[in-house]
């Protein structure tokens, strides 16, 4: 199976990564190579096998529902590429009418 151009562009969109038109073929070939290689898993009969998400078989522990952290807005914002008055600044999200 080889990924077509449309699929490569869809995957890049899902990954939120801009790709140049000139790179679509190269990326498609590389991704197809890896996907073809992992397809050997199809040889294994896994019909009655329970998926394993994580080897830790401990119950997640509960803690008291109380505030243990926070009140450190300056630390949260310390690495922001752009911030003002305690907020992260991003490009305009809502388009203006008119």
């Amino acid at each position: 199976m080889s990924l077509d151009e449309q699929t490569v562009r869809k995957v890049a969109r899902l990954a939120n990564i801009e790709i140049a038109d000139s790179d679509v073929d190269r990326i498609g070939t590389q991704l197809s190579g890896i996907l073809q290689w992992v397809e050997q898993l199809g040889e294994v009969d896994t019909d009655n096998v329970e998926p394993l998400a994580n080897v830790v078989n401990i119950d997640l522990h509960l803690r008291e529902d109380e505030v243990t952290d926070g009140d450190c807005a300056d630390k949260v914002l310390a690495n922001a590429p752009e911030e003002t008055q305690g907020f992260f600044v991003v490009p305009k999200v809502v388009e203006q009418e008119g």
Binding site: V38, L41, V44, T46, V49, E50, P51, L52, V55
Partner: peptide, 11 residues
Amino acid sequence: IKAQKIRRLIL
């Protein structure tokens, strides 16, 4: 999901 099942078999 297939890979997670293989992971179980390896464990």
